[in-house]
């Protein structure tokens, strides 16, 4: 069920003096079961790009293929696409509208035309996946805490049982605890459902820990598409783009510059500690 993005370009306000290119001739392929981090700062085009993956935006030129078929050729059912490629927008809690948590999560599967039983089953599973306890099911979603609201909103997309889950800055505005909990549940979702995850973020630290592939966007173009370690090798360039590398990777570069013989392809604190101890013992 791979997704292929082929020479995709998207312009805002086409044909007006305010025209601007948001995505510029971008091509890449998403394979089954990947965990991709899509990084770029505000205005780099990453949010616009992901809205093409489920057909919410139509490219100005270029195409998107899902499972080998062109998504925008007219007879492709976009509803089916949207159930297969779940897109969680930024601040997804702003989309909650039902009187209770459970009905809100049912909205997605209900729109797919599933039976009541199947709908409820899926909603239940989705809520469990993101760690919402039964006690909250019949509360108003508006009475929950910020972190809980966001989980419920994500469950609303998960309940459609997408094969690809795309999340646009899911941790924005959460505190460190909320952020860690959320990222951890995403990892669990991936393990339990085997879905592909595309995580859009501007935090290198978040993505480094979970993604097995990182795509970096800058000025509407893809500049790097590689494993985290390989992407972080472009230390200077990433810094220039205002993105940087994880703090610990940066520290390893500084140590190396100061004459310590440490590797620089390190992205977690534990690995850093091991590497430093190794040279210190020698």
């Amino acid at each position: 069920m791979s997704i292929i993005v082929n020479h995709l370009t998207y312009r805002y306000n086409e044909g007006t003096p305010m025209e601007s290119v948001a995505v510029d001739d971008v091509s890449f392929k998403i394979e089954d079961g990947e965990f991709i981090g899509l990084i770029g700062h505000t205005g780099s085009g990453k949010s616009t790009l992901v809205q093409h993956l489920n057909g919410i935006l139509k490219p100005t030129s270029g195409s998107v293929y899902y499972d080998g078929r062109d998504v925008f050729d007219g007879d492709f059912d976009l509803k089916v696409l949207r159930s297969n490629v779940g897109l969680v927008f930024q601040y997804p809690e702003h989309q909650l509208f039902e009187t209770d948590v459970f009905s809100d999560v049912c909205f997605g599967p209900k729109n797919l035309g599933l039976s009541k039983k199947e709908t409820e089953l899926r909603a239940y599973k989705a809520l469990k996946l993101v760690g919402i306890e039964d006690d909250f099911f019949y509360q108003s979603p508006f009475d929950l805490s910020g972190g809980q609201k966001r989980r419920v909103a994500i469950a609303g997309v998960l309940a459609m049982e997408p094969k690809v889950l795309v999340l646009d800055e899911p941790t924005a505005g959460l505190d460190p605890k909320g952020r860690d909990d959320l990222l951890l549940s995403l990892k669990q979702v991936k393990e339990e459902t085997g879905c592909t995850i595309v995580l859009v973020s501007h935090s290198m630290e978040d993505v480094a820990l979970y993604a097995d592939r990182i795509i970096v966007m800058n000025h509407a173009k893809i500049v790097y598409d590689d494993t985290p370690v390989n992407v972080f090798r472009h230390y200077d360039k990433l810094k220039e783009m205002g993105l940087g590398v994880p703090e610990i990777t940066s520290a390893m570069y500084k140590l190396r510059a100061a004459g310590f013989d440490v590797p620089t392809d390190i992205i977690t604190v534990n690995d850093a500690v091991d590497a430093i101890m190794k040279i210190m013992r020698a």
């Binding site: 460190p176 605890k177 860690d180 630290e205 994880p246 703090e247 610990i248 520290a251 604190v269 534990n270 850093a272 500690v273 430093i276 101890m277």
Partner: peptide
């Protein structure tokens, strides 16, 4: 308290 500790601080502490 589940607060973030800067990675550098955390690394130094482990060392």
């Amino acid at each position: 308290l589940r607060l973030d500790v800067p990675q550098v601080t955390s690394c130094a502490h482990e060392l």
